[in-house]
Simulated scan of single mutants.
Amino acid sequence: MKVLVTGATGHVGRHVVTQLAEAGHEVRAMTRTPATATFPAGVEVVRGDLLAPESVPVDGVERMYLFPEPRTATDVVALAKAAGVTRIVTLSSGAVTGGFDTDFQLPVEQAVEASGLEYTHIRPGDFASNTERLWGPMVRAERVVRYAQPDAPSLAIHDGDIAAVAVAALTEDGHTGRWYDLTGPELLTRREQVAAIGAALGEEVPFEEVSADEARAILERQGGWAAENAGFLLGFEDYSAGGTSFDDVDWSSALVPLPTVPEVLGRPARTYAQWARDNVDAFR
């Protein structure tokens, strides 16, 4: 069985590739920059871009892990079906379960379901890796995190656990037609997450509280993903691009650890502290 992994160098995709390869499966890893990709021996690395469906290498593939690109999802899925792909596992978002008609994940889920192929949707909430994209530049440069709302809670999930659920859905029976909402195993505040990063580094990393406006300005200066998502992450926008207030959310009832990871994998979900130890080099 050959599995195509799109978005193979992403935070989750690279784990999907590695876990499939380590389990002995034949893997084709698709990336826009194959020359810089580093994967286990035996992985077939190919160039492809979801924005150019004709470049997606679906020939000879039986199953596919699909990164969410809504603009071309219908065409990519149609090409996969015509090539003989029988099962697609999509990386989606917990926002879909929450009832948000997102422009990002929902169209991809709809395209896959309409194809008639076997499918599973993976819907993680807060990615632990997002904290590296938010705070990594500050920690690396100054060993400090300047951010808003230090007591805001998170159920951040280890990217490797997201990937492990996706791999199970790709390679095992019993997951077809299901969607899996994923969270980490414990509720931590942002201040506690920063403390876990410091513990992994073996150094103190203070959390310096700033206003939401100041935090947004900091992220915008950083650029990249942090700047693009600053408005949503800090409560200036919701999934419909409208206004929302952090204080209007009843976090005590909205954030509850879900048992999905242990139910699917037969082991506990990994903690944020474990994620920080596994990714400590990103903060050095």
Rank of each mutant, 00 (worst) to 15 (best):
A156D: 12
G94R: 13
A156T: 13
D126R: 15
Y180E: 05
H121A: 05
D101K: 02
A128P: 14
Q105N: 12
A164E: 11
A111N: 12
R146K: 15
P153A: 08
E132W: 07
H158G: 08
N130W: 12
F104C: 13
T131G: 12
L134Y: 05
H175P: 02
R140L: 01
D161N: 08
L155G: 10
D159N: 15
R87D: 00
P137H: 09
R133E: 15
A114L: 02
V96R: 02
P107A: 14
V167S: 00
H121C: 02
F100K: 10
A163F: 10
V96Y: 06
S115Q: 02
N130R: 02
V145C: 04
R140T: 07
G160I: 10
G116V: 00
E186Q: 15
A200T: 06
I88A: 03
Q193K: 14
A128L: 01
A169R: 08
R190L: 13
Q193C: 13
V108K: 07
V144I: 08
A168G: 02
G99K: 01
A168R: 08
G174H: 00
H175D: 01
I197Q: 10
Y147Q: 11
A111M: 09
L117S: 00
V96A: 05
A163G: 12
A156C: 14
A200Y: 00
R140C: 09
E113D: 10
R146E: 13
A164M: 03
R191M: 05
D173Q: 13
M138Q: 14
D159T: 12
P124K: 07
I88Q: 01
R87L: 01
E192V: 06
R133A: 12
V89A: 09
E192S: 05
